[in-house]
Nucleic acid binder design. Structure first.
Lengths: 225, 225
DNA sequence: CATTGATATATCAATCTGATATATCGTGGC
DNA sequence: GCCACGATATATCAGATTGATATATCAATG
């Protein structure tokens, strides 16, 4: 779970642990309050498996304008040099800056494109993959959406069975009914996403391969932010 | 988390582990696929702390019609006797039947009425409490709903900030927008629940204490199924 | 009578959470 | 001047949960 999230963030730029947490919380929205007790071990795991490489940094000492947390971490190597040279002055607490390796990139794509949910929470797993869906090939993206739709459709069926139960008290029944509605809402959203995705791909095909019988299924891996 | 769920189920009748799992899955709807690796340790914990008591049972040997899984477990003590008497014949694999103790009942009410979420998942925690809300006093019930509403309102604020972010790609933006909508939907549901709850309590007050200034806040702990 | 699937309990490694500890740095108040 | 506080930053631990695996009984099916 976390592995995919971390690799996804590092796919774009190198980051240190604390900043990864901040982005997971503020930008992704999933992982509302991810614990350091899972984040740091995850980073260690990824490092041990060679998916990321770490560079000790002495913080923003060499950055001209020390704007907090946002902005590139360029100058890290200089910071390291400064630290090795015995200059603990003017530095924040040393950071460990992580960057993704080629192996990590391969792992990322494998995790992103896998059929099974990553981790325990369906919705979270899907949300995470959707957040990085721009790194998927168009068909893989569509497949992700349709897989999720199938999941929700199955859930809707069991939700309805439950809501139709006779021995439920008011509160449990309301819960079951609301759950049914929420699932329907999710499916409608997915349908919009799928439709928009299909149109996007149709437009792409007619643009690059002519309007008919396009087998132009090239792996267009967008890297646009 | 699980503790509350288990105690809630045992509050109504004694059950064995496998059956608890089934109800958690089929009736509550939360805990879609609760693992035995969490269920059995949870039962052990509860037993160790004296919240539940366990009776070894030799299954449905003494039950006239051996209907599978549904139906009361009456006859367990007889089953135990039969087993002690050395009658392993005609029995299913022996069950451990759990029943709640007075201490367990106290723990249940304490967990149910607590301010903090039980466990890691807000929605699950609230859903679980709502499923057992009939065991709460009217004000505590209202308080539960309003606490949840506050939670969602706060979430809505951060959701909106995120959705308003400028550097989001299409998929992340869609995710953020959908999340916002889902939260609004949840709040609307809660508002209906709160309204209905207020009317219920108003009706109760005018019925039992006259229509004005009723301090008839007796702890009406409903036990209706 | 053998296989499969449901019932039933148990345990393990891996993972995640929440709490706690440690340390540095910037800022606001006095 | 300085001191408390909050933000930044990493680390570790106990406890809870998952998913997998193991074991055993029983009912139905062929």
């Amino acid at each position: 779970m976390l592995d995919l999230a971390i690799l996804g963030l590092l796919h774009e730029q190198e980051l240190h642990g604390y900043e990864i947490r901040r982005r997971l919380r503020d930008e992704l929205g999933l992982f509302a309050n991810i614990s350091f007790g899972s984040l740091y071990p995850a980073l260690s795991r990824l490092e041990a498996s060679g998916a990321v490489a770490v560079t000790e940094s002495a913080g923003a000492a060499t950055v001209a304008v020390p704007m907090p947390s946002t902005g590139s971490i360029s100058g890290d190597r200089a910071g390291l040099r400064a630290r090795r040279a015995g200059a603990p002055r003017g530095t924040k607490r040393s950071r460990k800056v992580y960057r993704i390796t080629d192996h990590g990139r391969a792992l990322f794509e494998q995790l992103l494109d896998a059929d099974e949910p990553v981790g325990t929470d369906d919705a979270r797993s899907f949300g995470l993959r959707l957040a990085f869906a721009r790194h998927l090939a168009p068909q893989a993206r569509l497949s992700l959406l349709e897989r999720r739709r199938g999941q929700l459709t199955r859930r809707l069926a069991t939700d309805r069975v439950r809501a139709a139960g006779e021995s439920l008290d008011v509160y449990t029944r309301s819960l079951a009914e609301h759950s049914t509605e929420a699932t329907q809402h999710d499916i409608a959203w997915l349908d919009r996403l799928i439709e928009s995705e299909r149109q996007k791909q149709a437009a792409l095909r007619s643009e690059t391969g002519g309007p008919r019988s396009g087998n132009a299924m090239t792996a267009v891996k967008g890297t646009n932010p």
